[in-house]
Design a protein around this nucleic acid. Sequence first.
DNA 1: CTGTCGGCTACATGCCGACAA
DNA 2: TTGTCGGCATGTAGCCGACAG
Lengths: 704, 704
Amino acid sequence: MEVPAMAHHCEEILLQIGLLSSINVSVVKTLMEVELRVQIEGQGSKSIQAANMNEVERGVNPQLWHACAGGMVQMPLPNSHVYYFPQGHAEHTLTTVDFGGIPRVPAFILCRVIDVKFLADMESDEVYAKIRLNPLGNTDIGYNRGIDDGVLVETRNVHDSSDKPSSFSKTLTQSDANNGGGFSVPRYCAETIFPRLDYAADPPVQTVVAKDVHGDVWKFRHIYRGTPRRHLLTTGWSTFVNQKKLVAGDSIVFVRAENGDLCVGIRRAKRGGIGGPDSPSSWNSYSGNSSSSPSFYNGFSSFIRDNESKLMKGNSKRNNVTGRGKVRPEDVIEAASLAANGQAFEVSFYPRASTPDFCVKASSLTASLTSQWCVGMRFKMAFETEDSARISWFMGTISSVDVADPFHWPNSPWRLLQVNWDEPDLLQNVKRVSPWLVEVVSTMPMIHLSPFSPQRKKLRLPQPPDLPNEGDYVFSSFSGNPLGPSSNPASIQGARHARFGIPLMDLNLNNTHKLQLGLFPSNETPPYMDTKKDDVSCLLTMGISSSFKMEKVDEKIKAPLFVLFGQPIHIEQEVENLSIKNENQELDNGHCKVFLESEDVGRSLDLSVLESYEELEKILANLFGIENFDKSYAHVLYKDSKGDVKRIGDEPFSEFVRKARKLTIPLDASNQNDKRKWNISVQSGEHGLESSKHSGAIMTIFAL
Amino acid sequence: MEVPAMAHHCEEILLQIGLLSSINVSVVKTLMEVELRVQIEGQGSKSIQAANMNEVERGVNPQLWHACAGGMVQMPLPNSHVYYFPQGHAEHTLTTVDFGGIPRVPAFILCRVIDVKFLADMESDEVYAKIRLNPLGNTDIGYNRGIDDGVLVETRNVHDSSDKPSSFSKTLTQSDANNGGGFSVPRYCAETIFPRLDYAADPPVQTVVAKDVHGDVWKFRHIYRGTPRRHLLTTGWSTFVNQKKLVAGDSIVFVRAENGDLCVGIRRAKRGGIGGPDSPSSWNSYSGNSSSSPSFYNGFSSFIRDNESKLMKGNSKRNNVTGRGKVRPEDVIEAASLAANGQAFEVSFYPRASTPDFCVKASSLTASLTSQWCVGMRFKMAFETEDSARISWFMGTISSVDVADPFHWPNSPWRLLQVNWDEPDLLQNVKRVSPWLVEVVSTMPMIHLSPFSPQRKKLRLPQPPDLPNEGDYVFSSFSGNPLGPSSNPASIQGARHARFGIPLMDLNLNNTHKLQLGLFPSNETPPYMDTKKDDVSCLLTMGISSSFKMEKVDEKIKAPLFVLFGQPIHIEQEVENLSIKNENQELDNGHCKVFLESEDVGRSLDLSVLESYEELEKILANLFGIENFDKSYAHVLYKDSKGDVKRIGDEPFSEFVRKARKLTIPLDASNQNDKRKWNISVQSGEHGLESSKHSGAIMTIFAL
DNA sequence: CTGTCGGCTACATGCCGACAA
DNA sequence: TTGTCGGCATGTAGCCGACAG
């Protein structure tokens, strides 16, 4: 045995001994490893000490913070301007807040950001921010006042400083969380985030040192081994999992900070899917009590989940830090009082909580309110995927534009929009959204989105070459995009990820009828179209004054009066009708319609018009530009209405059409470098798939 | 293998498997054991659920409660009368309480006990009681009003219902708490408390089922095995230890309740010995702020200890249930306000906390205040031993009689007595005590106590035949007890464990000078005697009115005026002087003095007058009436001033005299049935043992 | 009688490559 | 490339009698 090999042998042995008190070993590297083990074992008590300390407001590394907060979160920079919504702040308490004691709290208050502190809960590691705000005396939404133009400072996010992403997140598998105490490190993470590994060693092994949100140091043995070779974290990993109480489905984030430090953070999985709240609450039933905020849920479920016992273990009965109410009602009252009095105040914002940010970038709000919101408008809205790994855009249609809580906040645009989602199953609890959170796709359906795709990092999905050409999609006779990338210059200024508002006036209505005709059998009229079309309150916009005006729409008035920048605007009734016709029918009656959406949103198919598996195969191959799709086609899986997973061909095609809800296509055949799966979710029409074999099933395909 | 043996074999195996999912075993007993294991394993989560519940006020079995509370605790029965001391209540907060907001709170308020609830902390299992009290309009201390005579209901304690004790407590050894997960069951416990074991089986084994203070059921495998045979708890024990976070030194209590249930409770060890507080506080330095209660400690240290981390593990940072402040200042304020207004109120009393009961049995208070308290009086007071296993009586001398907190509670007898302890090391933090807690032994030293010994159960110490005869004690020329068992009939009425007050008038002063002469070289006067003797406020008594009067003693007045039952009383100056002479000299100068105290209090020797180990041996043998003491004498251990433990003879006798502080004598030789050890604590004189070899060391011997 | 110890067994933890997706 | 599995080594929990105090 030559010396290096023996040294390595000793190292291996010592690492597994664990309890090493006074072994005299002359190999330096081995001693380092011993130290590693000892320090890891010592971390238990250290962490406990930390948990017993009072919350220390030592800041979290901002890059790590953002990585933990998730891609959806943008925090304002100091000196930028935001609108503070007490109403939204109250939602964070997950209970009701009585603002009765404070006279005249405005619905939103323009503030200058004094300071943002990036923090993390000592116990759960949940990241949060303390934002110090200074109310500006004049809370006009200053489209003409220059707030947007000069004063506003750009928000920052984790990607701002460098184009090359310096973080990597992975959702823990069962094996990562449960078995044997190891963690499979994706090669990308090992090679781009971790320190360089000496592959000459056999096996290549190193100690990875990472700081968590508290600055506590964790050490992991990183080894490259196995056949085929793969990167693993072994010693130290299970300690981390246990201390942080991680379970499969939680995510771990590695961040290479600007100072070179490797940081590690966690994102707890959400329970119950996107928009899954912990207590059911319907937005359609107003609870008319004196509370300001009936429970809202916008698309983020809270931290609590089925195996929350793992987190509650050992927690005091009096401790609800990890549960609801990280923000207390009195905190909201205090902030709102100070804000209403023009005094500086501080709010805590928990980006992983269930509720949207209540400090809205001034430019976003301004832009969103200069747009005209109309029933029937198509929009998309970004959500985190259920595993928090990526952002998905979901399509929806505005079903109503009205003030969410007219009794308590009569002038508030907060959750102004009632929406119907193309995939209501996934977003059942998101009934209302605020306009600045959505991006208008079109006031009509069938306009593809590629030019609108928001700037995103690591968009790994290849752009099928024919994607922008909607003519290639089945069942659509719609021949072009009548609008193109249209934008309101005022509304996007200063907003990097601006939500686009497309002025209604820009609409070219000529082609929409084509679309409609193409979608519906010309001799058939959707059943309720005539009864519904006059029954819609349509549009809202706002003036310059801080409390924008909204005229209640008289159902008898064909062209109601709205105010835009103080000027009355008349709405074209045709547009309104068009939207209603298209969208409501589409949602309520599943005939032969195709959605072609931005590539990771998914695609919709109407299965009911297909005759055979062969036909489906052609369409799918066509849709994704896959050559030799037949090789993969046999591996396509689908989930039926009962949740059972089956394979294409397992049952007669008619049965398949009736039952299929979600398809998963392995794409190996099309691209050797992209083996990701596709999900095709099937959305049933109004009549239900079970009740009629003629009712069409709409399949929406989105990237996993 | 015959069937029973095989069945037992299976049982053994299955018990050790632990994880048994679907093994088909036809032996009924074996299945029972499997169930045992499963339930024990399931208890972890159950206990966690319980900890997360809000405190449930389900009562604790009173017998179990008393066993956990300890032998010192007597709780009043409903309809009995107690005096409520807000001042004492405030001590339970372990912080300062500002009564400023409540006008005129009396120092003590006579109340009728409405209800007593026996409860236990959900997390720590610490027992406490909620006592509901109804203030009586007239709070006179009614010596002549009959309160003591007819109305008072006797207190109850754990021994009341049956002469045969139905509980057993054991302090956990290292082996019990740490090793191998087993518990050595003392034979007495196994045979008298546990269910009867079938000794015909091989080995004899059974499942012991016990309920804890919450009613949760714990199951232990109880086996009688080993050579020599002994009782052990195995399976289930370490789970219990871990869940309850027990450490060596904690005590476990098994109680056979009246309904036949076996109950199990715990008593956490105290840190730092008797009277060891968590924060140093001297009673001699008044902190003259506006708070009502500078920190008091009477002789019970709080629950916190060195390895409190074991208890804090997993507790929330916001949770201080297990720490200080189980009683909050606002609780005291509320109770005091209601009490002062004559409204019913409720208090929580934690008998294991550091502070004495603030609900004082009316008869005890009455009795104690009809006695006359004088500087120099000798008394004894009961304390729990450090391991909480038994009660020890400690001797002391009243050094001052004055109101503890004259600014806030000018009329309060609470902690009226400043005391010097014969063993100050063990009771350093007990500077002041309340008169009802002490039992006057004599107003002079050297009066033996046997006739006064309070009624105690299981007094296992044999009464040495010559103990009552003080003439046998070395270095005492004092030839007799001039008083004999003297008592004030009024003061002991209705008080089962009454503290005796000896009227000063009964003192026979004739022999005291003899004593003094015997104790001091006639040609030597203690150095500070002349300067101090006029500087003592001596006596306090009280009138019938609720606020007793105390005249401030003018140092220039030789015979100050005191009020007893409204009548002025003149104090004989000689008595005063005597007390001062005897006691102060004794405490400050260790010349040739002997304390002979009640048998479990300990005995004091002045080592400095001895010449040799042989002489010591004779004295010790004599002192305890041990025959053949030489057999044990070689095993006598002593602890020196540095805390080192040595054996008699390890060093020269002069060295031994200088250093020895505490002796432990195994008494095997004297009594085969009583192998308890004796501690002899050595108390150094004023000059310090190190500074002069002539300064005497006083040894106090007390039972362990 | 009972506290502590070392021996022993069984189990849990955790590292490993195999294998397959 | 990486998730999961079985194999296996190691450390530890926990039951046991020996032995001594």
